[in-house]
């Protein structure tokens, strides 16, 4: 038992030391921008028409990764639904009045913040994933405090429509511009709310999908995790 711990420490320290050393010598911290980064910093605003470069990369340059990412989230939902069987919900102790009343005030505010973040995802820090998490947290709070379950069918439908929309926008790009996820809408003016072609639309779809998926996961865990 002791030996195992010592070996683990030795392994960990070696790992940290070797990787940190070779990183620092070959890729020093705060080094110059790489070829890829230079290109993005110089050309993103021109090519995609939005000022948030991270969003541009996530949704446009590497939009395919993002499609994969939503798929991974869907997989988590599917896995949780598949692995945890449906069970009758146990009676849970009622939440504290502060929580019960607080949720009524906080819930719409959280939702509003989430919607704001997703709509301005291409202009300011934020976007579909962040907003999705925020919105899902609102629903989660709702479920925890009222100890009820939401209509999961509705969430499943939202998620499925949003996901399909994303995939079909991608396919539409093949026919409109010869490449999957091709940005076929007018780009508009930089810094405008309505700019960037398909980017804000895709990001809103992602926001819908992520929020409903996360809500589904949490809700299933609350249900399935209840001890018989």
């Amino acid at each position: 038992m002791r030996l195992k711990h010592i070996l683990a420490w030795v392994f960990v320290i070696l790992f940290v030391g070797v990787v940190a050393y070779s990183l620092q010598t070959e890729v020093p911290f705060g080094h110059d921008l790489t070829k890829l980064a230079k290109y993005y910093v110089d050309n993103t605003a021109k090519e995609t028409g939005i000022p948030n470069f991270v969003t541009a990369i996530v949704v446009s340059y590497r939009g395919f990764d993002t499609l994969g990412e939503v798929t991974v989230l869907l997989l988590a939902t599917l896995g949780v639904i598949g692995i945890l069987p449906w069970e009758k919900h146990e009676k849970v102790k009622k939440a504290h009045p502060v929580l019960l009343w607080g949720i009524r005030i906080v819930f719409p505010i959280i939702l509003l913040v989430g919607v704001y973040i997703v709509i301005h995802g291409h202009l300011t820090p934020g976007g579909g994933f962040q907003a999705g998490a925020v919105i899902a947290s609102a629903f989660m709070l709702y479920m925890v405090s009222l100890s009820t379950h939401l209509d999961l069918e509705a969430f499943a439908f939202t998620e499925s429509i949003a996901g399909t929309g994303f995939a079909l926008i991608g396919v539409a790009g093949i026919f409109a511009g010869g490449a999957f996820l091709y940005n076929f809408l007018p780009k508009g003016n930089l810094f405008d709310l309505f700019s960037g072609g398909i980017i804000p639309i895709v990001y809103i779809l992602i926001g819908l999908k992520v929020s409903s998926e996360l809500t589904e996961v949490v809700s299933h865990m609350m249900k399935g995790g209840a001890e018989q």
Binding site: Y40, E69, L73
Partner: peptide, 19 residues
Amino acid sequence: PVPQALVLTAIVIGVATLA
């Protein structure tokens, strides 16, 4: 901006796996 975009993806994947 590239690693930031990659990390966004990696975080989501991490959350999904954890769930």
